[in-house]
Computed example of a mutant assay.
Amino acid sequence: MGISRKKVHEEIADLIMEDIKNGILNPGDKLPSISRMAESYQVSSASIREALNTLRVMDVIEVKHGQGSYVKERMPLGFEHEFEIITRKDIENLLGLRKIIEVGCVELACSRADEKDLEKLHEALEKMQTAVMNNELGEQADYEFHMAIAEATGNQMLVTLLDDVSEKMLETMKETRRIWLYEEKKSIRKIYDEHKSIYEAIERKDAEGAIDTMLTHLNEVESVLLRHHK
């Protein structure tokens, strides 16, 4: 079979995902061994390993040490039809809401954040850095970082408002990471650096810088989601 344009492991990952979507592989099924898959797809074992790692990062499969690779029992948001339910307008509205709330929050945080608030933000950053090192998604740390900014405003209504959209926001951030990791157009390191810049602006009480960095971050998230939305 001819494999072109995409890297070999990306093409293999796509083929495995198609088998899952078409019911050839079902949730809980064990994948064939690496050697069997390499023979079947006529590629190297290294390419199969890279493809499986890509699918693991995307939360589509899980690797059980000593047992092999298995299709996840519960598919991630965006794998089949769930992400398609989120319309383009929904994404625009969600990110528009986030911009309004979070730009206001980060501006207030610059003048109101105390040492305890900065410590919470720093802890979330450290969790994100750990995710970078482990090649993980780090969406929970991302969520905690944004909520810590809201809490730093001292305005509980802002915290509640942001928390009201937390579930959808968390899933959206998770989907963004999968897209960035899979297509290699962005990286978890880049996302971490953006959050670090936001933290540093708050730390030096630079409201203008904090607003600029927050808007840059949210605009990039929106751009990626809209570019890949079907």
Rank of each mutant, 00 (worst) to 15 (best):
R5H: 12
K7N: 04
K7D: 04
V8M: 03
E10I: 14
A13F: 01
L15N: 03
I16C: 11
E18Y: 06
D19M: 10
I20E: 02
K21A: 05
L25F: 14
L25H: 02
N26M: 15
K30P: 05
I34L: 14
A38I: 03
A38S: 09
S40G: 00
Q42F: 07
Q42T: 08
A46G: 03
I48L: 11
I48N: 08
T54D: 14
L55D: 07
L55P: 03
V60I: 11
V60D: 04
E62H: 05
E62M: 07
V63G: 01
H65M: 11
Q67G: 03
Y70Q: 05
E73L: 15
M75P: 00
M75A: 12
F79E: 01
I85H: 11
I85L: 15
K89V: 09
E92G: 04
E92R: 11
L95G: 01
L97W: 02
R98Y: 03
V103T: 15
V103S: 08
G104I: 01
L108S: 09
C110G: 06
E115Q: 11
D117M: 02
D117H: 11
L118Y: 03
L118K: 06
K120A: 10
K120V: 10
H122K: 15
K127V: 09
M128N: 13
A131I: 10
M133P: 07
N134T: 15
Q140V: 11
A141H: 13
Y143P: 01
Y143A: 13
H146W: 13
M147W: 09
G154Y: 04
L158A: 03
V159T: 12
L162Y: 11
M169H: 05
E171I: 01
E171V: 05
T172H: 07
E175A: 10
R177N: 08
E184I: 03
S187A: 10
I188H: 14
D193W: 06
D193I: 14
E194D: 15
H195I: 14
E203R: 10
K205E: 14
K205G: 10
A207W: 06
G209H: 04
G209R: 04
D212P: 01
L218R: 08
N219Q: 07
N219Y: 04
E220P: 02
E222A: 08
E222F: 02
S223R: 14
S223M: 12
V224G: 11
L226Q: 03
H229N: 05
K230G: 11
K230A: 13
